[in-house]
């Protein structure tokens, strides 16, 4: 992990250029906008973004305003990876024929959790398998926030959304959060990582590594959403930090098939610290929280064991 007290002044060394512009229409405290800002700082100007329909697309491109200072295209919801595949293939052949720049271009597909784990999963899987030289960035705000906080397969267990509401007969989301990064890892791509903008240096290091790697790479980035998670907007960074420090959203990399935890936490903060400030979890009872804690521990232990195994091998 990069975030040690000695690194506190490191932000001053980060690239000052903003490729995701101020004046975008993101909600107050939008984690996804921050994800984009940090990712593009790592990417630099030689980058093309293929954006799925969703929060990021809506808040960034109401004609004639655009938040993008790099070339950007939006085609549809479920096909960001396929569009990126076309962009990458096009550049490859045109470069060969002397009709495009020779320098390396980061081709980046950007989609939310719905556009990735649900409707866009097929296109993502296809593009990874075909081994296009591109980076897929999933900003995971854990529901369809743009359309009004409906559940996705990436919504965590127990979260109340507008289509998985908590009620007399329901805890809210009844299913466990889909483990997208591990589904992606099963494609045996050269690099993938989980990240969170609350750990910006870690995020940007991983993004840089993804962009520098030839072949398909994947970044799964937690994007706290004050609107959908129902917490105060100033707590967005804090929520991301707690998601990581409780083990609810562990940070790791899988490099050439080997998993490495970005910070190994033998002891972790109790999950209630993360759940309590969020309105989407407010209805949870003590037993529910115990069950969530048990699950988080179980998943984290699994990751620890896998990391040990991979390091030993």
């Amino acid at each position: 992990m990069a975030e040690t007290p000695g690194d506190l002044f490191l932000p001053r060394l980060l690239p000052p250029q903003e490729f995701f512009a101020e004046g975008n229409r993101g909600c107050q405290g939008c984690g996804a906008a921050l994800v984009m800002r940090q990712v593009l700082k790592a990417a630099g100007p030689d980058t093309i973004v293929c954006n799925a329909t969703g929060c990021m697309e809506i808040i960034s491109s109401p004609y004639p305003e655009t938040a993008w200072r790099i070339p950007w295209i939006h085609v549809a919801f479920e096909n960001a990876a396929a569009v990126a595949a076309g962009v990458e293939s096009g550049i490859k052949v045109l470069r060969r024929k002397g009709r495009y720049h020779d320098r390396r271009i980061n081709v980046v597909a950007v989609a939310g959790d719905g556009g990735t784990a649900d409707i866009g999963l097929q296109a993502l899987s296809g593009a990874l398998e075909r081994y296009h030289d591109f980076t897929y960035v999933c900003y995971d705000n854990e529901a369809y926030m743009n359309t009004g906080i409906q559940r996705s397969s990436s919504t965590p267990y127990g979260a109340s959304t507008t289509t998985s509401p908590s009620g007399r007969e329901s805890i809210g989301q009844k299913t466990q959060k889909k483990n997208l990064p591990m589904i992606v890892a099963a494609h045996e791509i050269p690099y993938l990582a989980t990240a969170c903008p609350s750990f910006p240096l870690d995020l940007m290091d991983k993004a840089r590594r993804a962009f520098q790697t030839v072949g398909p790479t994947y970044l799964h980035i937690l994007a706290p959403c004050p609107t959908g998670w129902r917490h105060a907007s100033d707590l967005a960074i804090e929520m991301g930090r707690l998601a990581v420090e409780t083990g609810a959203f562990p940070l790791y990399e899988v490099v050439d098939g080997k998993l490495k935890l970005s910070m190994k936490m033998e002891t972790r903060k109790p999950i209630i610290d993360y759940l309590k400030p969020q309105g989407r979890f407010r209805h949870l009872k003590e037993d529910d929280i115990k069950e969530i804690q048990r699950r988080v521990d179980e998943n984290y232990e699994k990751l620890l064991r896998r990391a040990e195994l991979d390091e030993g091998g």
Binding site: A21, G23, Q28, S61, E65, W68, R69
Partner: peptide, 16 residues
């Protein structure tokens, strides 16, 4: 849109 970053013209400061 041919003016990259034109969102900067928008006064989102009046939201606060």
């Amino acid at each position: 849109i041919h003016s990259p970053g034109s969102a900067t013209d928008q006064n989102t400061g009046d939201w606060k």
